[in-house]
Every structure is written in C-alpha cells, then in structure tokens.
C-alpha cells in the first residue's frame, strides 16, 4: 500500500466527503475494537508510522478512549510514532544469535553507520534490535527492509543494506 490517501477527510467529486484513510482501514475490519492491532499494522504499512494525531480518530471509530488506543500503541514494540529511515535494519540479539557473535556484529554495524542501536544514521539507516526472527540455526540473522538475511557477516550485512539503500534511492528518483 502506498501513501495515496490523506489522513484527514477530503471532499470527493460528488461532494460526499471521501472517507479518510483511517476510516477506510477501520471499516475494512468492521470497526471492531478487537481488530485494533490489525488496524494499527495497516496504518503503519500505509504511513510508515502510527502518528500521534491518528489516535483520536481511531478511538472514535472503534468507540474506545484515546487513552486506550495510546495504551495499545505504546505497549507493542512494532508501532512507531515516526517513520524509520529508508533502510530499516532489525538485527536479532536473542540468545541463539548471541552464541554466534551477534553482539559484536551489532556493535561493529553501529560503529560503521555512526549511530547507536535504536537510532537512525545520517545516511538514513535505522538500526533496531529484535528478539528472534526464527532463523536460530543460521545465526546471526537480521531483517533489512523486511527481507531476511541469515549466516551474517559484516560484509553480507553491509551488502544487504547497500542493496536496500540503492533500491530506496531508485524509488525516490
């Protein structure tokens, strides 16, 4: 899904207000409060983040309080208030990957990118920790813009990041 719809309502050609992105995402899940997490995932896929400004409308649609929606957004590690950089690296730091040197791998990656774990480098590379990608027999592992990479070395990780950076630059051009 791309960012094709405005966050707020706009007027459609026949003068009926066009439903906002949030209204459409909520409607897709029947405006059910039980589907809140799915709705937040869909919103983040569309916007790259779950912006603070979206919480009120979601709450209204699902008949929840804004505090309840905020509580859910802040509980789950997946949801972010601001989009990640064009290249998002999620490196595993759970035990199996640690047994294969993940800690040192992450430290070296952060040093090369000039950023602390959890941050975004000047070059637009966001590096985050993740706890298990289910590739524990092929450690260390990471996810770069959603694509999985295992048996990582410094070179393989850099190549994966470079490939995604080139792809992101190509898409932006």
């Amino acid at each position: 899904m791309s960012i094709e719809a405005p966050l707020a309502s706009g007027a459609g050609p026949d003068d009926t207000p066009e439903p906002s992105l949030i209204a459409r995402l909520c409607a897709r899940h029947g405006d059910r409060p039980a589907a809140l997490i799915e709705i937040l995932h869909d919103l983040q896929e569309a916007l790259g983040a779950v912006p603070d400004g979206a919480l009120g409308e979601i709450a209204g649609r699902l008949n929840l309080t804004r505090a309840e929606v905020h509580g859910v957004v802040s509980f789950y590690h997946d949801f972010r208030a601001r989009p990640a950089g064009p290249v998002q690296v999620k490196v595993c730091r759970a035990e199996a990957c640690q047994a294969m040197g993940a800690r040192a791998l992450i430290e070296r990656l952060c040093a090369r990118q000039g950023v602390a774990l959890g941050g975004t480098s000047a070059g637009g590379v966001t590096i985050e920790a993740v706890y298990c990608l289910g590739l524990c027999a092929q450690s260390p592992a990471a996810q770069v813009n959603g694509r999985l990479h295992a048996r990582l070395t410094d070179d393989r990780l850099d190549a994966a990041i470079a490939a995604e950076a080139a792809g992101a630059a190509g898409a932006a051009a």
Binding site: P33, A34, I37, E38, F75, D78, F79, V130
Partner: peptide, 26 residues
C-alpha cells in the same frame, strides 16, 4: 489469522487472549 505486534509476552496464553481482543498484552 491475526498478527501479533512484537511483544514476547503475548506467547503467554492470557496475554495472547488480551491481544486478540485488541488490547495491551497484559
């Protein structure tokens, strides 16, 4: 099929049920 959202605790059955109901996975 329902997606989790990166909370390890939701593998605990009662947290999972809370999460399936759309709430914090407590």
């Amino acid at each position: 099929i329902r997606r989790g959202a990166g909370a390890y605790i939701c593998g605990e059955e009662s947290s999972m049920l809370e999460s399936l109901e759309g709430r914090r996975g407590t």
